[in-house]
Design a binder for these strands. Structure first.
Length: 417
DNA sequence: TCTGGGGTCCTAGGACCC
DNA sequence: TCTGGGGTCCTAGGACCC
């Protein structure tokens, strides 16, 4: 049995790089570049150029703070559509090497080269990774860094060492040794909460935790987490790479520049989000059985309510009816102003495949979604399609999302996931 | 400093069924 | 009349990732 050969290809400063490609004369010429929410008051950094990072700017940082740290930086919005296209282009290039490519996010791709030893006969994993890197650069104008090894954990952690524009492969058998240079907080899924818990037991680095036996770790952290950490710090982790995989939920939410109070205002904003979510759901060829509504109160308390229906729905009117009831319920439970409202559609049922077309047609209109609701949505889709075509005719170069990609089962924001 | 938008996975309790 | 155990589905919340 050959040892697994897993790679993680991670695009360098993805959103910044795409912003520069989109606008070579503007953003392309600014070393100090920040890409992110330009709502000024409530935006955060999506990505900062390596030059800007030297000033302490990091992603997810409030924009106000980022500008204070790096006052000379240029701030531009995220070019979402171009990012979706570039993400797909990277995935396509990777699939030329093996079909087993999993998009973990827009800019991260797991690649399983196990069993390709004969195909790339004699070539080391390092050389194959370098060749992949060069090919992606040539075909997409984007630099990826590639980490690799016998499982996803070491591949991911090696990729951080490979940045920028490099390759780092961990040889089989050296996984445990490789891990010793890291902090526990560097391990994927060890977030702020876990880091704090570990620190309370005096555990900060991988080396700290290596001094404890399996039983001691279990005694400290509990059955599940104890075993989990014992394996991770020895470089053991999941191996399976899932080729493709479809979206499991679609959500659209919005933070408002000013808090919204009162049902009328909240409902108006909810309906706009419902329209976006329903449209994107249908574009991706899905129906949803579960409708959820999320609010973030003015004091940053997150609350959520959801309902699962007997039959899946995809029309604006059906989703809006449920969403409104959920919003009323949430507002009644805590009638305060909110800073964010979101709509989430899950329990997705595909309706794109020809095999399922009959099933859909046969699905009777029920109490949750009437025949009339569906007709209205069909009319909306028809108008959108027409408008999209006109935009293309005018040569503005901004085709409406999904116009020609219907039924590929890929979400606009997680294109290959 | 005052916190985006898009996701995934896990847990725990209750309802319900066998 | 009182007592089970197991399995599945649903809901809410939380941690985490990019």
């Amino acid at each position: 049995v050959p040892a697994p050969r897993i790679l993680l290809a991670d695009a360098d400063a993805f959103y910044v790089s795409v912003a520069r490609l989109v606008d070579p004369e503007g953003a392309g010429k600014k070393p100090l570049l920040i890409v992110g929410g330009t709502s000024r008051e409530r935006g955060v950094v999506t990505s900062a150029s390596y030059e800007a990072r030297k000033f302490g700017v990091t992603s997810a940082m409030p924009m106000a703070r980022a500008i204070r740290l790096c006052p000379d930086a240029t701030v531009v919005p995220v070019p979402w559509e171009a990012c979706v296209e570039k993400s797909r282009a990277i995935a396509r290039t990777l699939r030329d090497f093996t079909p087993v490519v999993e998009a973990a996010s827009s800019d991260e791709f797991y690649v399983d080269l196990t069993g390709t030893e004969n195909l790339y006969k004699g070539e080391s994993l390092t050389d194959t990774a370098r060749r992949i890197r060069e090919t992606v650069l040539k075909e997409t104008e984007l630099n990826v860094s590639i980490g690799g090894g016998t499982n996803r954990l070491v591949a991911k952690m090696a990729a951080t060492l490979a940045k920028p524009a490099g390759v780092h492969i961990v040889e089989a058998g050296l996984e445990a040794d490789f891990m010793r240079r890291f902090w526990l907080s560097d391990i994927p899924m060890v977030g702020p909460k876990a880091t704090l818990r570990y620190a309370k037991h005096g555990l900060k680095s991988v080396d700290d935790a290596l001094k404890l036996s399996r039983d001691q770790l279990v005694a400290l952290l509990g059955e599940r987490e104890g075993h989990w950490l014992y394996d991770r710090i020895r470089g053991k982790g999941p191996v399976h790479v899932e080729a493709r995989g479809e979206a499991k939920s679609i959500s659209r939410d919005q933070t408002f520049s000013d808090d919204v109070s009162g049902m009328d205002g909240m409902e108006a904003r909810l309906l706009r989000l419902v329209d976006r979510a329903a449209r994107d759901l249908r574009d991706d060829g899905f129906q949803a059985r579960t409708v959820g509504v999320r609010v973030r109160d003015h004091d940053f308390t997150d609350r959520q309510a959801s309902r699962t229906l007997k039959e899946p729905v995809s029309s604006e009117r059906a989703i809006a009816r449920v969403a409104k009831q959920l919003l009323v319920k949430l507002h009644a439970a805590r009638p305060v102003a909110c800073r964010l409202i979101g709509v989430q559609l899950s329990n997705l049922v595909g309706d794109a495949g020809p095999a399922q077309l009959d099933l859909l047609a046969a699905r009777p209109a029920g109490p949750d979604e009437t025949e009339r609701d569906r007709k209205v949505s069909q009319a909306i889709d028809a108008v959108r399609k027409k408008l999209g075509a006109e935009v293309v005719q005018r040569g503005q170069g901004t085709r409406r999302r999904g116009g020609g990609t219907k039924g590929q089962g890929t979400g606009p924001s997680r294109p290959e996931a």
